[in-house]
Amino acid sequence: MTEQNEKQTKRLVVRLATAAIAMFGFGFALVPLYDVFCEITGLNGKNFNQGPAKVSSVDRSRTVKIQFVTVNPASMPWEFKPNERSIRVFPGQDRQTAFYARNPTAHWMVAQAVPSVTPSEAAPYLHKVNCFCFDRQPLEAGADIEMPLLFVVDPKLPEHISTITLSYALYDLTEKQNVTHTIPNKNKGQVTL
């Protein structure tokens, strides 16, 4: 290998190695990129818009059926169900409802509700003004609670969508109290003891 060749090879190898490390970083960058992509397209029913929604007008020409569904994942013993199974709202109209939760076990527990919307096309149009899924919900042994949800449907919802289903999976976080959130998600509140 001539002298000049060696220098060339060294330069090329350094460039290729940095490319490999850059792609390793890109693998991790895919995580926030995925969240941004979800926010735009509502991919996988993820729903990010929290807080007061600046809605122009109430569109009384059509009603949208909002359905509530609950799931207790991974042997979560709490009793957890919506007070109203499904309701009809006008797009742009603020609506309040509540979810009932009871901790039947003999020890203190804390849980986190994870929302998901279907059809995923409708996810960007469902604004959760105030939701119990913003914070972790602690419950003493045997206690129960009415958890509020205030939401509004954006009038710009496409015409062909007439039913939106909002599901909540209630996860038990009692052991994993100190689980730091992977992505600084806006809706991660503190444990209210």
Binding site: V31, V114, D172, T180, H181, T182, I183
Partner: peptide, 16 residues
């Protein structure tokens, strides 16, 4: 290490 890249409980996503 207790992160939740793919665990829905901590804000992660199996589809990710």
């Amino acid at each position: 290490f207790g992160t939740s890249f793919f665990n829905a409980a901590g804000g992660g996503d199996p589809v990710l």
